[in-house]
Design a protein around this nucleic acid. Structure first.
Lengths: 238, 238
DNA sequence: CGACTTATTGATGCCCATCAAATCTCGTGG
DNA sequence: CCACGAGATTTGATGGGCATCAATAAGTCG
């Protein structure tokens, strides 16, 4: 009798690893159930697209696992990555009619997807959720502006250094499998890194070897990096 | 008796030129009066700062008149402009502790200022205002991301062309005083334009003369531009 | 082990920053 | 009214950083 009957409802939010950090963090049980009703989980394989720039904005989503990139293109086809999305980040454009950027999974990804119309309605009816979304959007704006500094003013060396420091923070060492301690997984190809930093593959590669020769980092293998001299790297990031 | 007594309250919102477009647009009369009570108008002269990067976020503001720039700097002192603020835009960082960018008036400016703590409290109590703020923040994020494309991938020529087209849209011809018809006021020095576009003064100047020689624009004087061949300019903006 | 993808390394050239100097604009005071 | 000077803008010369083109090397998967 005392057992809360709601828990019987199949509810993937209960076990959600980003529940507290994502925009649903402030909702109570009843609200979560309602949100659950309009959302669904979806797996994406690395390389798959969730949204295409310019399409009607039909869905929004919360990232549960994995890493995605947001990108846009110039008229003449050059790609520019606008940012990366990590677990607990929110993706898509609520209250708008078209999606301003493409979203592609860089790794295998688990997202929690909502039809935009459903989400918009739900948000307007739940100010606490809207508030969370506002806070998240504001910090996303802050992060985006920091990125502008990188694209507008930093040299290739500074960009790569900044990027490595960022990643090392966002991916605390988990996967020390037989490799160097302190190493972390890059999870991005050189080409993807180049896109993120607004550089070319070749330049990224050259900067990596420069850093290696200087003893600042070591590269146990292609998809891993170990920061050997964090202070030096921070200096380079300027 | 039928005369609404509220109107007796001195209320500068009533005559506000951006009232409908700014975040206060959806508030009813009573709410406006309450908002009025915590805000105050303030004039800034061109060159004056409203916020400094890194300072405690003490105020937020609505732009009523004029044009401001948001900027940040690298550790080694190079400035990067993050964007421009026009009438009806919202400035500052609610729900945060420090201001992530500096705000400086480029022209004489009229703003409607709130202490951040007051504003935060008011916003949380008025979901309609929060919703407006959310929408505005989302479109600001869209605009900022477009700007990243400019900084990350466009050539100097494309940047200048894009900039001129943008300005011509944002400043519909008002001030045709004895100069060329269709001309509009630049209001920014070459140096300011250079900062905005992530270029140097010299490059901006060279691009301007190139455009002039190509007959795409004419420059009646230093602070004015007339677009002679919009189509060509749009092609250049790519 | 071979075919294919991804990364590294090398050579060259272009765009734009930097340094330098000439010219323009405009306010100020003689 | 004009001369003067400080700041802004334009124009010129040079160089560096990064893209581009090209070739080699290193993984990866059948």
């Amino acid at each position: 009798m005392n057992e809360p009957f709601l828990s019987r409802t199949a509810n993937f939010c209960d076990a959600c690893t980003v529940r507290n950090r994502a925009i649903c963090g402030d909702l109570d049980n009843e609200e979560i159930v309602a949100l659950n009703a309009i959302g669904q989980r979806r797996h994406l394989s690395a390389g798959e697209n969730l949204l295409w720039e310019g399409d009607d904005a039909v869905v929004v989503a919360n990232v549960v696992e994995g890493m995605l990139k947001l990108s846009t293109s110039t008229a003449d086809g050059k790609e520019q990555i606008l940012g990366l999305a990590f677990p607990a980040d929110f993706i898509g454009r609520p209250f708008g009619h078209s999606t301003p950027y493409s979203v592609e999974a860089l790794t295998d990804v688990l997202v929690c997807v909502f039809r935009r119309a459903d989400f918009d309605k739900f948000a307007r009816e739940h100010p606490r959720l809207e508030h969370k979304l506002l806070e998240r959007t504001l910090s996303e704006l802050d992060r985006t502006r920091k990125w502008m500094l990188l694209l507008g003013r930093m040299t290739a060396e500074q960009r790569v250094a900044t990027f490595l420091l960022d990643l090392s923070v966002r991916f605390p060492v988990e996967e020390e499998v037989g490799t160097q301690p302190g190493a972390f997984a890059l999870r991005l190809s050189r080409g993807q890194i180049a896109d993120v930093l607004g550089l070319t593959i070749e330049t990224v590669s050259r900067e990596f070897t420069k850093l290696k020769k200087a003893g600042v980092v070591s590269l146990p293998n292609r998809r891993e990096v170990a920061i050997e001299d964090r202070e030096a790297l921070e200096d380079l990031a300027s």
